[in-house]
Structure formats: C-alpha cells, structure tokens
Design a protein around this nucleic acid. Structure first.
Lengths: 341, 341
DNA sequence: CTGAAAGCGCTTACAG
DNA sequence: CTGAAAGCGCTTACAG
C-alpha cells in the first residue's frame, strides 16, 4: 500500500555507500566532508527516490526540532493574524515551523497546552497570552525553555518581550485631544493584570501629568476586557460618573466600537458630543462610521521581531532578557473633533 | 545547566520497575496491562519527576505524530482566523496539534512547505489553498497523505473538502435582489481557477436561469482576485460595460468594500444607485457605511468539520472522498434596496 | 503481569 | 574521505 518513505539506508543502498555518508551529504553543513563526486551521486539518488529526512529521528538525536510553539489568546481578534503572519514568515526564513495553539485565559488549559508543546520538543515558545505576573512563564523559565512574549509582557523580567510602546501611544492620543481643545479627557483602561492595560493607563496618566490639565480633568475607568460589549458598558458607566467628559481614549478598537454603541444608545453623536480614540488600527477601521481615529500598532513588525528574538534566544540561551518596543503612530480620522464650546 | 528532562528510564529507576512497564503505564490504553498497584506507584513517580513523554521518540516508532499541517493562503484575510480556530479546537479535542503555514499562490513555495511538513511526519494536511485542479493535492494523494481542503475544493475528487454551499448562497443573494425589484443584476466573479470563483459564478447563473429574467439582464465580470482593489477596479469596468446594472453580487466582502470605493468615486450612492451584496460576513460588516448586506458563511463550523474529517480520513484511509457543504445564510442590512424606478 | 530485546531513522564521535 | 558503532527515547511483540 503506502510504499514506505525512503530512508537514509535506502539512499545508501542505491548509491553504494554507507548510510552515514548519505547523512553527511544530506546536511549542507557536513557536505564538504564528503568527496564532491560521491556527494553528487548521493544527491542524485536521494532526489530520484524522493528522499525526505525524517524530522522525528533527527529531533530525537539532536534535541532540536526546529519548531516553535505559538500560543495565542484569540486568533479571531484582528490584532493577532498579522502578528502570527510576521512570526511565521520570520521563522520559516530560518527553517523553523510554528505550532499554533489558541488558549483561553484559563491557567490549567494554558499549562496543559504548553506541556503538550514541550513534549513535542519545541525549541522555544512565543506567548501572546502573558499576564504581568505570569506563573506559566515562570514555569517555562524554570525549565530553561526559551520564551518570548508578544504584544503583552510579563513584568518579572524573566522573558524577552516584543510590544508596542504604549507610553508613546497614549501620549500621541492625549496630545491629539489636547490640541483639539479637550479639557475633560477619560481613559477606558484594560485589565490591570495585562501589561497593555497597565502600561496604557500609566501612559495616559503620564501624558496628562505632562500637560496643563490637573488631575481632576482626567478620569480613568477600568473595563474588564477588550471587547465591544465591555466598551459599551464602560462608556455608559464612565459618563454617569464623569458627565463632563468630552473625549475618551480606549485601549482597543473593539472598545472604541463599543463606545460608538453607547453613544448611539444615549442619543449622542461622535465626534460632536464625544470624541473617541481607538487603539490598534484593525482592518476596516477607516470604513466604519465615523472612521476611527486610533493608535496604529505595527502588528506585523511585532511578530517579525518576536521570531527574530526567539531564534536569537535559542542560539544564545544566556543572552540577556530584552524589551523590544516598536513605535506606534497616530492615525487621525473622523471620530475626534474639537469639543462643543 | 539544563537539567535534562526525565525519560522513561528515569521514572523506571525511581519506581523500581523496567522502563517498558513505565511505558505501558503512561499510555492510558495499555495501562490495564499493568497491575493497579504498580501503575499507581509509577504514575506517582512520573508526576513527581515531571515526566513528559518525548513525542519525537514515539513518533519515530509509531509513525504517528498527532500533528496536522494547516496551509493557509492568507491568515490576514478575516475569513481564515475563524476557520483556523475551528480546526485547532477540533484537533486539540482529540489530542492533535496544528502546524500552521502561510503560503502564497506560488506552487514552488507550496511544495516546499508541504515537503517540510511531511518531513515533520504530519499525519495529514488541511489545505485552504486548493485550486480547482491542484497539482499539489495530486502529489499528496500520490504519496497517500490524508488531505482535506477547506473553503475551496479541488474538483478532481481526490480529496475530501469542507466548503460553504455556494450555489445556495448565490441563490439567496439573487432572490433577495429580485424581490427588491432589480432587473439588471451583475456578478463580480472571483478567479475561475478557484472553486469559490467558479461555483459562485455557476450559482449566480443558475439563480438567474431559474428566475423570470432573461440572460441579457444578467452580467458577469471576472475579477482577478478577492481584494478591495480588485473590487473597485471591477465595478468601475463593469459599469462601463453594463451601465444599466442596478445591483451587484460579489464573491467577497472585500470586493464589496471595493465596490463602495468605486461607487463613491463615481459620485453615486449605495444602495440608492447601486445595491451591493457581499460574501462571507466578515467581522464589523455591520459597522461600515452602509452596513453590508451579505451572505454569511459559517467559517468556524467549516473549520470544525475539516478537523473532524481529517481525523476520520486518518483513521480510515480508504473511506470514500466526501464533500461537506455547510449552508450559508443571507444577512440583510442596508447596502441593498429597491432600484430607482 | 513484568522484563528483555529489537528496532524506528537519524547524528556524530571514533577509527582507519 | 568513508565506514562501523553507539545512542537518542520510545513502542511493542515475545518470553516467562
């Protein structure tokens, strides 16, 4: 039936050499140890037979699988596909493949998946699921598994991370609103246990601090998540607590869309009554109504950097932990305008 | 440094039994061959040592990796993330993992990636890159590799596929426009070498055929791709060739968005001058202006079915080739209306 | 029920 | 430059 795939021995037999010689020929790095003439013959036979090295066997002996585990919280969230693309392209360029797993916030599930991945002998892990204080990451480090976090970071300094510079992002957002004349600015913050939630909140406060506004003119409301529903609920409650607010900076475009929902429900208009700034610049944010002013994050670049970093970490396991921050940019569209005077 | 991971032998030594006994204990299916008392002791030692089976080794002997290769044309296209999610969830439920690779239309690149995947000993392949006549799929079948295509199908009947029922989808779209009173309906078709392009076009023509319209009242324009840019160029040219058109059915929401661009550029309005029907119902299509009437495809369900099918194919390699078609539904929003009379 | 052995397909010192 | 051998960590007939 399934005519078994040819092995080193099959190629060796066909070429009239020992299978260890074939092995040396198949690996470009050891090829020069073999005479050119023999190498040529072996290569010809290998390709004639359709020889394809069995990675399970080489992984077993070299302890390198050339596979990276990529763990995402929700591939369905539009920020992750470009990150994943950047990762995958970056890895493939160096002969690595990615096993991709989607896991919720449940720690048990995360551990289960990571153990499965480690059993698979992945050479490293790229985690997009990091919490600021993440026991899963501690565990990986305790086992000397190379780990890089993307998009979010763990703040214990045990793993390198590749993130957007959220302090800059929030400053861009706040300064834009200030320039438009807003004097009562609010921030809907994401969960405090995620670095994105925490750092963006700090960035918001720092930007206010640096302005001529006093603390009473800034308001922070913590939302339980980054979804559209959370955004709607958050703005509704925020406006109840701080009715003088004329502009809101969010931590996610989805939250901003939820704000649109809330504004509509209240019979108000964006940007006339409330200006809204998103975060991420997901696809099609130029097409929604009103087109969303937002902080564009370089997701693809973040993924590409993460691929580069994990490979670097694998190469030099003792090199120092790095924080890579990519600069975001402000994209001004129509959801922000001067406040009603 | 890296205190080596424990192996079967380590657990055996700690438990005072032979490592083959440990092996039997670790596998739930052979566990009952071992006395309950020994099994308990072994399990305790295994967990104490943090034993984790090395999949490279078991793959080498069983020739099963419990890994599936998933090949996507563009993870950044919003239809694929939910498909991938469905696949990954479905696989994981059965202990399988997914290696995900993104490849362009280039056949060389596809072959390269698939060979790499096969070298990795994947148990099967889920391909979202199928063309109607796909040499890559032929090659896989020639090597007895289980293959399932998703979203698109190969028409040679060599591989099972999981797709949306496009004939139904197009009928839904056309009948909706007919009911609104349209009498000059056009279709922007996708590439003929993709099943989605071909079948949707056939479905469009069949729906027109079944109506009281005559062939001169229907117009098909083939676009070179499913992008926003292609959609814009297509509608511009279509309107030049068939200016009486009052409604257009597309094969993709992206193309529909491109139609919006074209309509705006011409100084026309949607839906007053031209009604537009999308295809897929990507996220946020309810938020764009005007909210898009479209054919909703059950992407997540398609992914879940594909996972089920590939596992079934692996279990019973000689079972027959299946076409699984999920029913789409019409989502009416505001991009369609009665034509100007 | 448990152990001893062979073997999966490779890589890589070690000889010659 | 090439071959012979050991060994990676498992699974699974085969004995007992």
């Amino acid at each position: 039936m399934t005519n078994k795939n040819p092995t080193l021995s099959d190629v060796a037999r066909a070429s009239g050499v020992h299978f260890s010689t074939v092995s040396r020929v198949m690996n470009p790095e050891t090829r020069q140890k073999v005479s050119a003439e023999v190498a040529k013959r072996v290569l010809a036979e290998a390709s004639r037979l359709g020889y394809r090295p069995n990675r399970a066997a080489s992984t077993l002996v070299t302890r390198k699988s050339r596979i990276i585990g990529v763990v995402l919280p929700d591939i369905t969230n539009a920020v992750f596909p470009p990150i994943l693309l950047g990762i995958e392209e970056g890895l493939r360029k160096h002969g690595y493949l990615a096993i991709v797993a989607n896991v919720g916030a449940d720690e048990e599930e995360q551990l289960f998946v990571i153990n499965r991945l480690l059993g698979q002998q992945v050479d490293g892990l790229i985690l997009a699921t990091a919490r600021r204080d993440d026991p899963v990451i501690k565990l990986c480090k305790a086992q000397n598994v190379p780990v890089v976090t993307v998009n979010r970071s763990d703040e214990n300094g045990v793993a390198s991370c590749v993130v957007s510079d959220d302090v800059v992002g929030m400053r861009l957002a706040v300064n834009h609103l200030l320039a438009l004349g807003h004097r009562h600015i609010a921030h809907i913050a994401g969960p405090e246990n995620l670095s994105t939630g925490h750092v963006r909140r700090m960035g918001f406060l720092a930007a206010i601090e640096a302005s001529e506004l006093d603390a009473s003119q800034a308001f922070v409301f913590e939302s339980s998540g980054y979804s559209r529903e959370c955004g709607k609920a958050a703005l509704l409650e925020l406006l109840r607590q701080s009715p003088q607010t004329t502009a809101v900076v969010t931590g996610s475009d989805l939250v901003a869309i939820g704000c649109y929902d809330a504004i509509r429900e209240l019979g108000l208009n964006c940007p006339q009554d409330i200006s809204v700034v998103g975060h991420n610049d997901m696809p099609y944010m130029d097409l929604i109504r009103p087109p969303l002013t937002t902080i564009r994050i370089r997701h693809h670049g973040i993924g590409a950097e993460a691929a580069r970093l994990i490979l670097q970490t694998i190469d030099a396991p003792d090199s120092s932990v790095l924080d890579v921050r990519l600069k975001p940019e402000l994209v001004v569209r129509e959801s922000t305008a001067a406040p009603r005077s």
